[in-house]
Amino acid sequence: MRILLALSVCLLSPRAWGDAVADPESLIHRLARTAPASVGFVEVRYSSLLRAPIVVSGELTYLGPARLDRDVTAPYREHTAIRDESVSIEREGEQPRTLALRRAPELRGLLTGFSGVLAGDSAAVKRSFAIAAKGADDAWTLELTPLDPGMQRRLDRIVVTGAAGEPRCLLVFGPHEAATVMLLGAAALNLRADVALAQLLEHCRAE
């Protein structure tokens, strides 16, 4: 956890960035996508339970506010459909699993934040998060910190990095060194499978 914090402080430290971006709200507006919009991703999952991070890749499809599909294509196939208040996960050869968002404040927070950004709805994002933006137009960072104490216990913060109107990485920091780094579009190319979190954070920041 401490390592993560240090790393993210390093990631967010202003000296690394160019001209300051205006404000988080206009950044969110710039990130808005019109549904449907798809982007390829590579996701790296870190956890204190794991010896090595788990890497999966696939495609993310934004279908409109609170409607999101996440399809994993490698190394196995998995389809996740997020529809309003419920998340259903289907994997080949297994019983589908349905989760209610109310039961999982961390997941709800993640999805509200994510969906809010994709919809350009800064008001929706601000209902659940304190938002801050740093960096310059060519390399910015948007940080969402949950307001709800229940959510805080299980979701540390969400960080989006990118350049101009394009998001590059989506980082989710949980408790106990849990972290998920999702590299979007071009950022996902040429990624080594055994990459360490520190290198990955550097990668998210780089051009």
Partner: peptide
Amino acid sequence: KRARDLSSPAGLVLEP
């Protein structure tokens, strides 16, 4: 299956 769960959106919920 749990490893896959962990890297699914349910991962944050199931991990503890």
